[in-house]
Amino acid sequence: AEDTGVRVELNEEDDGKKSSIALKLWVEDAKKLKGKYKDTGAIEFTFDLVNDIPEVVAQEMVESGFFLDSDVKVVGKSIRDRVSLIKWRRERTVSPTG
C-alpha cells in the first residue's frame, strides 16, 4: 500500500470471528500530513468491520482533535488500507472446523 505516513496496526490477535477489532493508529511521518499534526501519541480504537466506514472514523478523530480537517483523507485511507488487509486475510483463512 502507498505510504501515507500514518500507521495502522492490529491492537489484538485477529481470531477471524469478531466483527469488531481493536486497532492502533499513529503518525510515522508528520510531513505527509497537510495540517500540523498534534503529537498526541498512538490512538487505540475499536473498528467494526461490518458497520464502520474508515472515512467516518477518520472524521471522528478530526472532531476529537487528533488531526486537522485537511488530513481526514490520508487518515481515512490509512485505516481503509489496513481494514482491507484484515478482510483479505480473513477471506483466505479457512476455518479449521469447516
Binding site: G41, A42, E44, E60, F66
Partner: peptide, 27 residues
C-alpha cells in the same frame, strides 16, 4: 500510565497511549 481517553459524541472511544519507540521509523 500516560494514557488518556477521548469519547467522541458518536460514542466511539479513543484511547491515547505512547507510540512504541521501536515502531517509529528511523530518522
Amino acid at each position: 500510565s500516560a494514557t488518556a481517553q477521548v469519547v467522541h459524541s458518536a460514542g466511539r472511544r479513543f484511547i491515547v497511549s505512547p507510540v512504541p519507540e521501536a515502531r517509529l521509523k528511523e530518522q
